[in-house]
């Protein structure tokens, strides 16, 4: 049998990057399914794209700007209206222990 395109360890790593807590069953299932999809995607390698520019979007336009004019903000109450948890005028999350995200 051919080696899988992506193994369970990679699936776990991608799940961590994606912030998805997967069950063991899901890891197994996704390993199988993603491998099949990636195998299919290999089809692209039949094409020689050496001299082809990548096309990120099809629009014929550049330079779309906005003037530096102030628009009304939502206000604290509306901003927090959908918050799962709040503390006063803040969003509330469990304590962040490490230094920084970026």
């Amino acid at each position: 049998m051919m080696a899988k395109r992506i193994d369970e360890a990679q699936v776990r790593k991608v799940a961590k990057l994606s912030r998805l807590a997967l069950t063991e069953a899901e890891v197994e299932e996704f390993t199988e399914q993603l491998s099949a999809i990636l195998d299919y995607a290999e089809k692209m390698n039949e094409l020689d794209t050496e001299n082809v520019e990548p096309l990120a979007h099809c629009l014929p336009i550049n330079n779309v700007f906005r003037d530096d004019c102030i628009k009304e903000s939502l206000g604290t109450e509306k901003t927090l209206a959908n918050a799962p948890q709040r503390d006063g005028e803040f969003f509330k999350v469990p304590k962040i222990l490490d230094g920084s995200g970026g």
Partner: peptide, 20 residues
Amino acid sequence: TKMFCGCALSFGEEANSRVC
């Protein structure tokens, strides 16, 4: 205003008041 929206930049106002 901010980089990608019309909210005024913040100078220590009430938290989450300059958000859209």
